Structure formats: C-alpha cells, structure tokens
Amino acid sequence: RSRTTFTAEQLEELEKAFERTHYPDIYTREELAQRTKLTEARVQVWFSNRRARWRK
C-alpha cells in the first residue's frame, strides 16, 4: 500500500473531528470515512498518528 495523500478538505474534516474527540468510536470513524471518501482503516490510522503528534 502506498502512502495516502490527504486533500485539504479531508484534513479539514479530520481535524474538526479531532477537536471534538481524540478517540472517535467506530460509528464516528465510519461516518468520517464516508464523508472523506477514505476507508475506515485510513481514518483510524490518521487519528492514531494525529494523537502521536498532539502528544509531542
């Protein structure tokens, strides 16, 4: 699998969701996946990476 490139629109959606919760449940992730046209797995990994960046 090659590296996922996120569009500005996708990042906006993901960042907005991250402001609400750092640990979205499966329903939230599924909804985000549909809205951003990404897979739920990509959304999950993005949140994991985003939390790592947030901790630094």
Rank of each mutant, 00 (worst) to 15 (best):
Y27P: 13
R1E: 06
P24I: 04
D25I: 01
Q10R: 02
K37M: 09
E31P: 00
Y23W: 08
F6N: 06
V45S: 14
K37L: 04
N49I: 06
L11M: 12
F47G: 02
Y27A: 15
E9K: 11
W54A: 10
Q10W: 02
A8K: 10
E15S: 04
R51M: 01
T21W: 13
S2P: 04
A33S: 03
W46M: 01
K16P: 03
E19N: 13
W46V: 00
T21A: 10
T5M: 15
R55Y: 10
I26Y: 08
E12W: 08
E15Q: 05
T36A: 07
V43P: 00
E12S: 11
E40R: 05
Q34V: 11
T5P: 10
K16Q: 07
Q34I: 08
T5Y: 12
A52I: 11
A33L: 03
W54T: 10
Y23L: 07
E12Y: 08
H22W: 04
F6C: 07
Q34W: 08
L32Y: 03
V45A: 15
T7E: 03
T28D: 12
P24Y: 02
Q44G: 12
T4W: 05
A17F: 06
L32D: 02
E13Q: 10
E31R: 10
E9M: 12
L11Q: 06
E15N: 03
P24C: 04
H22L: 04
T7L: 04
N49A: 09
R51G: 03
R50I: 00
V45C: 09
A41G: 12
K37F: 07
R42K: 15
T39N: 05
T4H: 06
R1A: 15
E31N: 06
A8P: 13
R55F: 15
K16A: 10
T4N: 14
T4K: 12
R55D: 14
V43A: 02
A8C: 05
K16I: 05
L14C: 04
F47M: 10
E40P: 04
T4M: 15
N49L: 10
D25R: 01
S2R: 07
R3D: 14
R55G: 08
R50W: 01
I26F: 13
I26P: 10
E9C: 08
Q44D: 14
Q34E: 09
E15T: 02
L32H: 04
R20C: 14
R20Y: 08
S48P: 04
S2N: 14
D25L: 00
A17Y: 08
H22Y: 07
L32A: 01
E13K: 10
A33M: 12
D25N: 07
